[in-house]
Design a protein around this nucleic acid. Structure first.
Lengths: 265, 265
DNA sequence: CAATCTTTGTGCACGCGTTCACAAAGGCAT
DNA sequence: ATGCCTTTGTGAACGCGTGCACAAAGATTG
């Protein structure tokens, strides 16, 4: 996954481990797909395969919610969909505001995965006066001045920050002051928030950097002639690029002779 | 972070724990900011605060890379930027293709955080013939038919999937067959890939669902009259919505009387 | 040069998460 | 009704990640 992780450990609630909570949406998605195909029941083995996890893990996860399965048969799909939705709080309506309607903000506003899971885009907010009134995804963009009023009128408790990094902390503070207690942050910054406010972070470039690390490792192993499990068809190309990227600091310079990556965040 | 996690455990390489690798980009960002302000050295305490982590954790993370600090002084910012960039493989050029140029794909193409960290958008690919030739972020979109050729010509090993869920697996298979060994998946599906291929997942709606879970828990605790650390100013609104969302299954129905969230993925 | 002060690097313990393996439980066939 | 077969639910062991606390190391000051 991408994605960042919580800032605070987020103490486990009612004994449901954080790791399990993070997997519930995965199960829910797989179950929903089964539900649409009118599959009545599913075994832990099948569902685990569909969700991409270990079946023992899945059973243990479900055991935290209660005993919703039938031995010898499996789980009732519809019932499980409901129980998980309920546990995640998706049976209620969650008004959400998106702040920062650039490319990413617009993409989020258009993203279908929100509305279908109980999330309602209550407002789109941007600091650019030129954006005000312009409809995005059928919703008129409102100016930042209205932020506090919107939050309070709509009873918004979840905010999405898709602004540039420089504006994120300030927006965050205004959201929190107005009553938001959960924030999904797409800006590449560490947000500091008071206790009681949850922040989750999604960072697009971090994920790529992690991939690059593993990719480099693969290339290094190939160049070193180490055994590699599969991906044999790829060897030439990977080796071509990574051959010079040896482990030891033979030279003090990078393989391309370039300078360290420096960016304006 | 949000975010999804790796599909495979991704065996630790050269003894650097996966958790540490995931934090290196955070440190790198904080260090880059310091570098721009021409700060020569930084202590583990300061840097940890800037990156939003524990200072002991940070020191332990750095210890996996080697002894790059000076006791009594701290770490040399420039040197550390270089070492981390190098470790992450950011000192080399990574051509990347983005498949699926919808709202999200366009946002990714425009995202500045890529180019600045050694990632180069080698091509934008979309299945819609009407998109072909249309420039997005200054790069002309190419048709899916060209996929294999592009991958091979450019030596691309990292692919980004931003297609609808239904197309993701097929695109994935074509990418892998053409030589891609690392995939960043934004489509809400579990991708199945052969050994040797890394997949990281970013799922926007999963993060929101996790926030909703905690939000519901907070609301439940407030309604139950439990002590709550801070966020006192918010109590009324949160309680208003969450009051009926008690822990015990008083009614078999959700607080809003609505049906379980069912969506088309 | 010696004493002091700051900060790193890490040994150690603890807790969480994962996985194995199996007993209990229920359906189903005979 | 009885026995078999399937699948759940979970006890227990293991490994990873985290955080504490401190010794070692180097700078700095007198």
């Amino acid at each position: 996954m991408a994605t960042g992780r919580t800032h605070r450990p987020a103490t486990r609630s009612r004994g449901i481990p954080e790791a399990t909570v993070a997997r519930l949406p995965l199960y829910l998605r797989a179950l929903t797909a089964l539900s649409e195909r009118s599959v009545p029941t599913v075994s832990s083995e099948e569902l685990a395969a569909a969700a991409g996890v270990n079946s023992a893990k899945l059973r243990k996860d479900f055991s935290y919610l209660g005993s919703y399965g039938t031995r010898g048969v499996g789980y009732d799909v519809e019932y499980l969909v409901y129980q998980i939705s309920r546990e995640l709080g998706l049976t209620q309506d969650w008004p959400v505001v998106i702040v920062g309607i650039g490319n990413l903000g617009a993409a989020l506003a258009n993203y279908g995965g929100f509305a279908s899971r109980g999330f309602r885009v209550a407002a789109l907010i941007d600091a650019d006066p030129a954006m005000a009134g312009k409809p995005v995804a059928g919703i008129p963009v409102q100016h930042t001045d209205e932020l506090e009023k919107i939050i309070q009128d709509e009873g918004v408790s979840i905010g999405v920050i898709a602004t540039p990094a420089g504006a994120a902390q300030q927006v965050c503070e205004r959201l929190v002051a107005a009553g938001v207690t959960s924030i999904l942050n797409f800006a590449p910054t560490v947000l500091s928030v008071p206790d009681g406010v949850d922040v989750r972070k999604v960072d697009l470039s971090i994920e790529l950097q992690i991939l690059a690390f593993h990719e480099q490792r693969k290339a290094g192993e190939l160049a070193a002639g180490a055994v590699v499990p599969a991906a044999a068809s790829r060897q030439e190309t990977a080796a071509r690029r990574g051959a010079a990227a040896g482990r030891e600091p033979a030279a003090d310079q990078g393989p391309d002779g370039d300078v360290p990556a420096v960016m304006p965040t």
